[in-house]
Structures are given as C-alpha cells and as structure tokens.
Design a protein around this nucleic acid. Sequence first.
DNA 1: AATGAATGAGGATTCATTCAT
DNA 2: GATGAATGAATCCTCATTCAT
Lengths: 195, 195, 195, 195
Amino acid sequence: MPKLGMEPIRRAALVNATISEIGASGTLDVTVAQIAARAGMSSALAHHYFGGKEQIFLAAMRHVLTVYGAEVRGALAMARGPRARLEAVVRAGFSTSNFRPETVAAWLNFYVLARTNAHAARLLRVYQRRLRSNLVHDLAPLSGSAASDIADRIAALIDGLYLRQGIDAGNDAGRTATAHVLAVLSNELDAKGTP
Amino acid sequence: MPKLGMEPIRRAALVNATISEIGASGTLDVTVAQIAARAGMSSALAHHYFGGKEQIFLAAMRHVLTVYGAEVRGALAMARGPRARLEAVVRAGFSTSNFRPETVAAWLNFYVLARTNAHAARLLRVYQRRLRSNLVHDLAPLSGSAASDIADRIAALIDGLYLRQGIDAGNDAGRTATAHVLAVLSNELDAKGTP
Amino acid sequence: MPKLGMEPIRRAALVNATISEIGASGTLDVTVAQIAARAGMSSALAHHYFGGKEQIFLAAMRHVLTVYGAEVRGALAMARGPRARLEAVVRAGFSTSNFRPETVAAWLNFYVLARTNAHAARLLRVYQRRLRSNLVHDLAPLSGSAASDIADRIAALIDGLYLRQGIDAGNDAGRTATAHVLAVLSNELDAKGTP
Amino acid sequence: MPKLGMEPIRRAALVNATISEIGASGTLDVTVAQIAARAGMSSALAHHYFGGKEQIFLAAMRHVLTVYGAEVRGALAMARGPRARLEAVVRAGFSTSNFRPETVAAWLNFYVLARTNAHAARLLRVYQRRLRSNLVHDLAPLSGSAASDIADRIAALIDGLYLRQGIDAGNDAGRTATAHVLAVLSNELDAKGTP
DNA sequence: AATGAATGAGGATTCATTCAT
DNA sequence: GATGAATGAATCCTCATTCAT
C-alpha cells in the first residue's frame, strides 16, 4: 500500500532506527538489514532513500547533533546573564532526552566513526566548536583571560561524564553529572572569577 | 624452522600488532589477517596462540591496562604525601607512553568493546575502580567527605581529555592535559580542602 | 498531465534510449532505470509499455535491423544492374547512420544477445539471410555457381569490418570499409566472374 | 584435505571453468559462484586466488589469446616461404582447438569486454597487432605496397568468420572458414601479386 | 497516462576459523 | 611450531518488477 510523500517519513524512521540499533548493540557493527527491519522496511528501501550505509550513519549522527544543538539553543533563549547561560548549556547537555543510555551509546560510537570517516569528523568538530564558543562567550565576563582554559576543562569534563554513562548508568545520572560540572564550574569561577 | 619457546614472543608480537593496528585504523574493524601480518606471521598461527579474535582483543586490552597500571604504580612509589601522590597519578596517565594517539585510539575502541563484551567490561571496571580508589585514598586526608565526589570529577575529566586527544591531538597534549587536571584539582582542594 | 496517443512516442523514445545507452556503455549490462531516465520517463512506465527488459531489448534490436534493412532497400531501388546493386548493398551497410560507433556497439551486443535469447537469434538470422539472399541474387549472373561461396565471404567480411569498428574507430571508417569490401568483391569477380 | 602447491592448479582450473562457463552460457553474465562450482571449489577460494571477478576474466582472456598465439607460432615454425606461412597463420586460427563453439563464444564476449575494460582492450589490441604484423610480413614479398590493405581485409575476414561461427556452427566450420580465407587470399595475390 | 513506493532475489566480496601437512 | 588451503556465513548493494495512487 504505497502512499505518496513517504520519503521524509521513511528517512526519519531510518534515522531513529539507526540510533536505537547502535544504542542497543553498542557497536557500529550494525547491518543495514537490522536497521531497516527496526524501521519496518526492506533493506533495499533503506538503500533507495539513503544511497548507502555510510550516509545512513551520517544522517543519524547529524540528527543526534541537531537535537542536542536545538536543546542547548532552547535553554539559552530562556537564560538571563552569563552564569545562568552557562548553567543552561550544562543542564541541556545532560537533559533526559540527550542522556539516555541509548543515545549516549550512539554518540560514543559516532566519536569512533569520526576517527575513520572525514564527514563524521567534520560534523563532530562543528558541534564541539559550537559548544566551546558558547562556553567561552559566557565565561569571558566572569573569568577574563582564563575563559579559554576553563572552557576546555568544562568541555572535557562533560565529554568524560558522557563516556562514563555507558559503563555505570545510574538512575539519575543526568542530575549527578550536572551537579559535577556545576561544582567544577563554581570552583573555577571562585578561583579565577572577577570579584 | 620453528623454534622452541616462541609462544611468549609470538603472543607479545600479536598484542602489540593489535594495538598498533587498532590505533592506526581507528576502528575495531581490524581483521585477524591484518594483525597477524603486522606481527609477521600467518593468521592461522594467531588463532593457534589465542584461540580466536576476541581473545586477541582482550589480551591487547589487558596489556594496555597493565602498562597503564604499572606506570601509575611506579609513579606512586616515588611520591611522598597525598598531594604528591595525586599529582603522580595524573602525570602517569598522561605520560608520553600512554598518551600517544595510537594508544589512545586503541583505548577508546576498548571502551566501545566493553559495551559489547562482558570480559572487556570487567577489565575496564577493574581499572576504573583502581584509579578511583587511588584518588579517593589520597583525597580523603585533603578533602574529607568530599573525596568521593571529587574523585568522580577528576576521573571523568581525565577520561574526557583522553577522548579529545583523538580529535585534536596537539603536540604536547600530555602536558596540557596534565595542567588542566591539576588546575581543577587545585580548585577543588582550595574549595573543599581542610584548612 | 498525461496525454493521449503517447504510446508510439514513448516506445520510440525508449528504443532510441536503449540503443544509445548500450552504445555508450558498450554493454548489455544496462539497467531499465538508465534507459528510462535517458528516455525521460520512469522505469515503471517503461515496463508498462514493453512488459519487461527483454522486450525492450528486442524492440531496440528490431529497430536497428529495420533501419538497416530500409537503407539497403532504398539503395537497391536506385541501382541498375547486378554490379551496381552489389555496390549499393555494401555502401548502405557502411553508411554513416549505420556505422556510428554507438550503433555498431549496440549491434555487437545484439550479436551477443542472440546467443542467449531465441527471439534475438531469430531476428538476427532473418536479416543475415536477407543480406545473403540479396548478395547471391546479384552475384549469380556475375559468377555463376560460385555465387554462394562468394556471398558467404563478402558477408563475413562485412561483419568482420563491423566488429573492428568498435576497437579502432577511424574517422572515415565507413569509406575505408566500403573500399575494402569492394576490392575483395572486384577480385572475386575477376577470378570467378563470367567475362 | 588441503595440499601444498595448489595455487597453479586452482588458477588453471578457474581459467578453464571461466571459458567453459562463458562459452556455455554465451554471456559475460556469469557468476563467480558458477565458475567456482565448475572448477570444483568455493567462490571464496576463487576470490582468494584472483582477487576479484575482473581479474578472473582477464586471466581467462589472456589464456585464450596465449593458446591462440602459441598455435600460430607453432604453425609458423614449420612453414617454408611466405605463402606457406600465410596459410599456416590462417589454418592455425581455425584449428579445431581454437574454433570450438565454446571458445569462440568466449572470444566474442571478450571482444565485448574490451569495450568496457581497459585491460581487456589492451590485451586484444596486442594480439590484433601481432596477427596483422604476421600477415603484413609475409604479404610484403608477394604483394608489395598492397600488403597493408590486404592484411586488413584478411584480418577482418577472419574476425567475421569467427563471429558467424557462433550463429551457424556447421560441423567442419573450421575447414570451410579456412577455405574461404585462402580463396580470398589467392584472389588478392592474383590481382596484386608480383608476377 | 504516469510515477513513487516497495521488495525479493541475487551477486560480489570479506573474514573468522578449521584442517592437513 | 607454522602455514597454505579451504569454506560457510555474512553483508552491502543492485535491479527488475509490481502496485496503489
């Protein structure tokens, strides 16, 4: 029962299925057939819409990053003042939707993909720069010339907490992770911040 | 002309070849044939000594973690006082031998492997606990009840810096990474430390 | 907005596209999608009009042979006397329209198709017999009982020159090929012909 | 029961199976699995020894041309005088071993392959030049400056007779074909030959 | 009349693994 | 101890063909 205008629906279904499948298996060793099955279609159709496995992966990665970016942007829109904005960035990153084990697993695997695939590497770098620039922008008024170094540390800490989410995914890991980053942030600002 | 007592030599060669190959390719998608070739033997022999690909991977992972552990232990042996010991642990983790891009790539991939493979997960957890217990042990006299939380943050920060080493491997990334961790550590101790 | 009376137009477009595509690619490994795209329609429509790939191929082959036959017939209509008619047949076969590399490539591939496909084989045989009978008809008054053998040789020579057109397509290959056949023909008639 | 030194045996078996399979099916649309099965091994082994389908095809083509070349060379070694040598070349080309329908079918398909594949085109051109140079070499003393044109005609005639062998493979097609070429050759020499 | 949607059936290729030598 | 030989099982991808709209 083919209907018209299926393309966006199918593509979205495949992207979600890819993230789920990578998340569930914990590997990039996921077959197109598995993804297509989870998305409720034949593997041939998946190829028809995306052209190949690599492009399916890239679309999925793009989607994860897009969602993440949207959430950060949304949080920033509400925040007033640099400190509130910094907190918003941190909270958004660990929000339930981003920090589900499944998503984190996909995210980690995209990190690995970026080591092999130039397109993936580019995507990743774009988002890392965006995060960093957000952090620096709001750290500057609070910590002056130390902003850059602090941003590097906060960014690395966030990544590290993500990484550990895969191993010991506690129940409210998101809250704990947020608390950790805010604690470090607070220390940094106490130490280097303008009085 | 096969020789006697080759087993340990062959095994070591395969372990090193595995790390190199994973590091060079950036993936776990490494064939036994590639590893064996790099180690200068046939893939059949690799199977003969290890029984299978999984065991080769596990041996390689074990080796990476063993070297890391040895280096930390060595550094701890020289350090006097809790603060010096904490610094020693950090420095050892980012020493040149552990922080080569190649090794870091292998390390990241073992992280991924741990999501799939129970043995790998166990190995990883053992070393994470050991690191954490080292940190807590020396943080306790300096920060009291905050030691546990601080240890979590420091450990995550270390992991995050490792993770980023793959993407933007600067020249003396090890030194920078060490500085970052020590800065955060210093802040933590200033904030929560006993007076 | 579908229009009425499109069938013959669509069919012709597909036939031409098939010949072009086979000629351009040099293979029978041409997909229906490629042909349809070149003909400016969907592959589904191609199937609708022809029923299947095989029938598209056969129609294209039929077209090539029809054009060839028409050209020969046209030339024969103008020629007076057996010798002039023989020359006409030869010239028509190597006329620019038949001897374009593209057409020749398609022709060669139809030769191959005839090995697999009974319908194609029948088509080919019909046209070969027609050529042969044309030749014999006009050779008889000039060479008597040798006509049959000479016809075989001339026909094979023509085919051989076609075959080589694919490999080293010179600029005025048609003229050269014609000259070669006429030279052999002349020799044959000098040797066996009635005085 | 694997044995040592199988490589040349396996390669030869695959080459022969390829020719047989192409000959029997009349197409290049032959699967590696079919070829391998006919050669009595798994398709994986075929890939192991040749690296890919294309290389299997090229090896088969090379073999056909090599055998042909060897036969011509052998015949030339026995012939005394230009005329005898010309006859030898012709006879060798139509000898039973070269002119089996199976071999001819493979040969035709290699002709097609040469339109797509540069390596195949090169192989084909080498052998065509060799044939042509053999002909010219021996035609020169008999026909002077006409040698080149005559060689082209004879070569094309040979090719054309090959081509037709696929369609109407008579019983002693080889003999007939030889007779045809020798007849044309005789005419050519009568017409242009030195007295 | 025309097409997007959809799939089943292959087909080339890769690879871990086994086995006889 | 060491390896060439061999394969089954997968996996990506392509394509002719069908169907509802």
